[in-house]
Design a protein around this nucleic acid. Structure first.
Lengths: 191, 191
DNA sequence: TATGTTCAATGAATGGGTTCATTGAATTAA
DNA sequence: TTAATTCAATGAACCCATTCATTGAACATA
C-alpha cells in the first residue's frame, strides 16, 4: 500500500517528460546524434535529473529494446501463420528481421551489444511467443529433437542473433528478411 | 618504390612505441581500465600523436582481434585434429571457444561489437582455415549440402558468433567450450 | 502550526576521448 | 646553399557522459 503524494506524481511526470522527449528525439535524429544535454534542454529539466531516472544514456536504448519485446508479445504473437510448426518458426523470424530493419541503423548496432542487459532481463516475451510454437510442433511430431522446448528456442535465438549481428557488421548491405528466412530454413533441417 | 627516409623510420618507431605500450597496458590492466593519456605518457608521446596512428581508442581493441586472427592462421591451422571433417569442424570451434575464454572478459565484450570493422576487414584467416576443412569434407562426402564451401563457413561462423555473443550476455556464466562443442554438433546435423 | 526529515531537482565540476591550429625539423626544389 | 614544402609531433581546447554536494519544497510528526 503506497500512498500517492504530490511529490510522487511530480516525479512520475518528470520521468515521463524525459522518457518521451528522449524517444521522440531518438526517432527524429538517431541515438548517436543526440546528447543527454539536448534531451534535458528539450524536456526542460537539468542534466542531473536525467540521472535520477536513468542510469546512463544507454538506458534509453534499452527502453527501445523493451518496446520491441512488447510489440512481439502483443502484436506478432497473433500474426504468426503457417501450415506447421516449422513454417511458423520461419515466419516468426521473418517478423523478427522486419522489425530489426525498420530500426534506424546505428540504433540496431548499439542495441546488439553484449553489454545490453535487456537481452537477459527482458526479451523473454519474444522467446515465450516462439516457445509456444515449438511446444506445439513437438507435440504434433513436426519437430524431432532430444532438446526441451526451452533449449530449442535458445538454440534458434542464438543463431538468429548471429544473423542480425552479421547484418550489422555488413551495414545492412543485403536483404535481411530473405537471409533470415533462408538461414532459419537451413537451421530447421537439424530437427 | 617508396624511398625510406629518416622521417618515415621515425614515424614507424613512434607507431610501434605506442602500439607496444598499448598492448602491454591492455594485457596488464584490461582495455577499460586504461586511458589514451596513460598510454601516451608511458610511451613518451603527446596525446595527439596517438591519433596520428590510430583513429580511436577502439582501434587498439581491433588490433587484438587481429592478433587472434593471426594466431589461428599460424597455430590453430596445424592443430585441428579429427577422424573426419565434422570432427575437425567441432575441434576448430573448440579452439575458437578456448581462445575467447582466455581473453579478459570486458575485452571480449568490447570486441564482439557490431562496429568492429575487423570482423569484415580481417578475420579472414580464421575463415580460410575452416574453409579448407569444409572443402575436404565435401569432396570426401562427409558433408552433404547444396551450399558452397564459402556459404557453409559463413553459416557456421554466424551461428558461433551468436554463441560467443550469448556467452558474453551471460557474463561467462557457463562453460563456453562445452556449449560451443554441443552447439556445433547440433548444427552439423543440418549437413 | 511549527519543526524536523525526505527527496526531487539542480548545475558546476570531473574524467576521458577526440580535434585541430601551431611548431619546427626533415625533406625537396631551385 | 637557400628557400619552400611537407608532415610528425604537440597539447590546449572541446565535447559529452556522468557525478555529487547543495538547495528548498513537499511531507511527516508533535
Amino acid at each position: 500500500m503506497v500512498k500517492v503524494t504530490n511529490r510522487k506524481l511530480q516525479a512520475q511526470a518528470t520521468y515521463e517528460k524525459i522518457y518521451n522527449t528522449a524517444m521522440s528525439l531518438v526517432e527524429k535524429k538517431g541515438f548517436n546524434n543526440i546528447t543527454v544535454k539536448e534531451i534535458c534542454e528539450k524536456a526542460g529539466v537539468a542534466v542531473g535529473s536525467f540521472y535520477n531516472y536513468f542510469n546512463s544514456k544507454d538506458d534509453i536504448l534499452y527502453e527501445i529494446f523493451n518496446k520491441a519485446d512488447n510489440f512481439f508479445l502483443h502484436t506478432v504473437a497473433n500474426r504468426i501463420e503457417g501450415e506447421n510448426a516449422k513454417e511458423k518458426i520461419i515466419n516468426f523470424f521473418i517478423h523478427y528481421a522486419e522489425y530489426c530493419k525498420r530500426d534506424k541503423f546505428d540504433q540496431l548496432k548499439q542495441i546488439y551489444n553484449t553489454s545490453n542487459p535487456m537481452f537477459i532481463k527482458k526479451g523473454r516475451y519474444m522467446q515465450e511467443v516462439l516457445k509456444k510454437v515449438v511446444e506445439e510442433g513437438i507435440e504434433r511430431g513436426e519437430i524431432c529433437t532430444d532438446m526441451s522446448p526451452d533449449e530449442v528456442v535458445r538454440f534458434l535465438f542464438i543463431a538468429l542473433r548471429g544473423v542480425i549481428f552479421d547484418w550489422c557488421l555488413h551495414d545492412g548491405g543485403y536483404d535481411l528478411t530473405q537471409f533470415a528466412k533462408d538461414y532459419t530454413e537451413r537451421l530447421l533441417k537439424c530437427f
